[in-house]
Computed example of a mutant assay.
Amino acid sequence: MSQAFDEGRHGRAKIGFVLLATEQTIEDDMFTLCPPGVGLHFTRAPIPDSITVETLRAQADDLAQAAASILPDGSLDVICYACTSGSLVIGEDRVFAELCKGAPNAEPTSLITGVMAALRAIGARRIAVATPYLDEINRREADYMTDAGFKVVNIQGLNLEKDSDMIRVRPDFIADFAARVDRPDADALFISCGALRSIDVLDALEQRLGKRVISSNQAMMWDVLRRAGVSDRIAGYGSLLRDF
Rank of each mutant, 00 (worst) to 15 (best):
residue 59 Q to R: 11
residue 178 A to E: 02
residue 78 V to C: 10
residue 109 T to R: 08
residue 215 S to M: 09
residue 60 A to I: 08
residue 150 F to L: 06
residue 187 D to A: 12
residue 73 D to T: 11
residue 220 M to D: 08
residue 122 I to V: 13
residue 238 G to S: 10
residue 132 P to W: 06
residue 97 A to K: 12
residue 217 N to G: 05
residue 31 F to E: 14
residue 68 A to H: 04
residue 39 G to A: 08
residue 49 D to A: 09
residue 94 R to F: 01
residue 166 M to G: 01
residue 181 V to L: 00
residue 178 A to Y: 04
residue 244 F to R: 13
residue 244 F to M: 12
residue 81 Y to V: 03
residue 51 I to P: 00
residue 102 G to L: 02
residue 236 G to H: 10
residue 69 S to C: 07
residue 73 D to P: 01
residue 66 A to N: 02
residue 184 P to T: 03
residue 141 E to R: 01
residue 214 I to E: 03
residue 135 D to G: 07
residue 212 R to T: 14
residue 122 I to S: 08
residue 165 D to E: 14
residue 75 S to D: 06
residue 38 V to D: 10
residue 83 C to K: 08
residue 188 A to D: 08
residue 33 L to E: 04
residue 236 G to Y: 11
residue 157 G to H: 01
residue 31 F to Q: 12
residue 71 L to C: 06
residue 74 G to M: 06
residue 137 I to P: 00
residue 112 I to G: 05
residue 52 T to V: 02
residue 108 P to F: 08
residue 18 V to Y: 08
residue 99 L to H: 08
residue 8 G to D: 10
residue 8 G to P: 05
residue 116 M to S: 13
residue 112 I to E: 02
residue 95 V to F: 09
residue 106 A to P: 03
residue 219 A to S: 14
residue 142 A to N: 00
residue 77 D to I: 09
residue 125 R to N: 12
residue 165 D to M: 13
residue 88 L to G: 00
residue 101 K to M: 07
residue 236 G to I: 08
residue 208 R to D: 04
residue 41 H to N: 11
residue 41 H to Q: 11
residue 81 Y to K: 06
residue 92 E to N: 13
residue 124 A to L: 07
residue 119 L to M: 08
residue 49 D to P: 00
residue 25 T to Y: 02
residue 89 V to F: 02
residue 243 D to F: 11
residue 239 S to G: 12
residue 14 K to H: 10
residue 138 N to C: 07
residue 58 A to K: 13
residue 105 N to W: 10
residue 89 V to I: 14
residue 52 T to L: 01
residue 45 A to M: 07
residue 1 M to E: 11
residue 210 G to K: 08
residue 207 Q to F: 09
residue 27 E to P: 12
residue 129 V to G: 01
residue 84 T to P: 05
residue 118 A to G: 15
residue 176 D to M: 01
residue 85 S to Q: 03
residue 180 R to Y: 00
